[in-house]
Amino acid sequence: MSDKAIQVTGLKKRYDSTSALSSVTFSVEKGEMFGLIGPDGAGKTTLIRILTSLLDPDEGTCRLLGISVHEDPKSIRKIIGYMPQRFSLYPDLTVGENLRFFADLFRVPRKERLKKTEELLEFSRLEPFVKRRAGALSGGMKQKLALSCALIHTPEILVLDEPTTGVDPVSRREFWSILKSLKKSGVSILITTPYMDEAERCDRIALIHHGEILAMGTARSVIDQFSGSIFSVSGPDLLGLSRWFKRQLRSDQVRILGDRVQLNLFSSTEKNVSDLVKDAKASGQVIDAFGRENPELEDTFITLIAEREKRNDQTISS
């Protein structure tokens, strides 16, 4: 079995007139943690539903450990653990009862079930709360319980759809440390997240936008694809400065932070920063300082999307 954990080839899906996925191809190695990053409506959830055999694609194939999702959904469900975006546990059941229910659902043999439950409770540090109702847990604990339920049948592949959305930073860190130890035990993980700092913890990521993969690779290599540069400018009137720069550049290239204005000069931007600053000063803007900043994943992401949209506009207009 030298198959990849997940192999997706030429996946397409349309809803009515809108294309949710347009020819998506990627693969996830065994034991790899792969992140899907993208804005709302990018097609992340559609992709995950196809992977978990909840939805059929229009075109393309999808194999998990060499098994076709389309042809053998039954076997797929045995090897995959899925944690959907919305909290999908029974709030009136206790932590223990929820685990037991999912164990029954997946027909985990009785002997194994007890051992597995204990293991999961210890691992997720939910043991002290085993008798508490799921509805009374904090956001972070709910997510850990949902994860435990997704792991009850010892899946080889774990699929997580925005597991940490709305969870506070402390709980997020804990959740990620659990994922890390899972990965160490050999589970392959596919995760979607809107948090860029989480994306950076994945082995590889894919930036997805309008059903299309814009970039793929390690977080570092994706950031390195960023060909523009980030500058920050500060002065007494940040709002005035930002307004001036927005007139010179696209408005999504300028952002006001608490103590500075940040400029994202895409590779396609014609002006360079020293000319801009000179022009700004000439037109009466007061600039105390300006300097270069290191681009972050989010900058790369936003630039890639902006440039893709610009290209689309051009193809439409030409």
Binding site: P39, D40, T165, S242, D252, R255, I256, L257, I302
Partner: peptide
Amino acid sequence: GGVDPIARRYFWDLIST
């Protein structure tokens, strides 16, 4: 809460303004 990075940037631009 729950809003993607692009929408968040846009939102903060409004707030800063």
